[in-house]
């Protein structure tokens, strides 16, 4: 399970970085999105993987899921969502203002 999650985070990050380095704004936006998925997954599993255990402390229970990373990842998702929306609008605005969708504002 750990290996699968680690591979997923790695794959998402690698694809995110590749797309971030592209020249058009749309792949860049996708790259940011993939990177934020990777980081969300990463934050989430930082509380360790556990199956079928509650995220609260109970008497007579030895194992429980750490609720803090879940709270952190929720914050990160909200912020990431807002940022993605903003960067999409900004990319559209740049497309309108500059006349093309290249990140440098002109066709190479």
């Amino acid at each position: 399970m750990e290996a699968l999650i680690a591979l997923s985070v790695g794959l998402l990050t690698a694809c995110g970085i590749y797309l971030l380095l592209r020249g058009r704004t749309f792949p860049v936006v996708l790259g940011i999105t993939l990177l934020s998925y990777a980081v969300n997954l990463f934050l989430f599993v930082m509380g360790r993987l556990s199956i079928g255990v509650p995220a609260i402390l109970e008497p007579n229970r030895a194992d429980y899921a750490d609720p803090l990373p879940q709270a952190l990842v929720l914050t990160a998702i909200v912020i990431g969502f807002g940022m993605t929306a903003f960067v999409v609008v900004l990319a559209l605005r740049a497309r309108a203002d500059l006349g093309n969708d290249h990140v440098d504002g002109r066709e190479p």
């Binding site: 971030l20 704004t25 860049v28 940011i32 990177l35 934020s36 990777a38 980081v39 990463f42 934050l43 990160a76 912020i79 940022m83 903003f86 960067v87 900004l90 990319a91 605005r93 740049a94 203002d97 500059l98 990140v103 440098d104 504002g105």
Partner: peptide, 19 residues
Amino acid sequence: SKAGLHYVVVNLVGSSLFL
């Protein structure tokens, strides 16, 4: 718009690294 796009993307990547 152009400067803003660069600034926003760079800082979003920075935020990911922070996380």
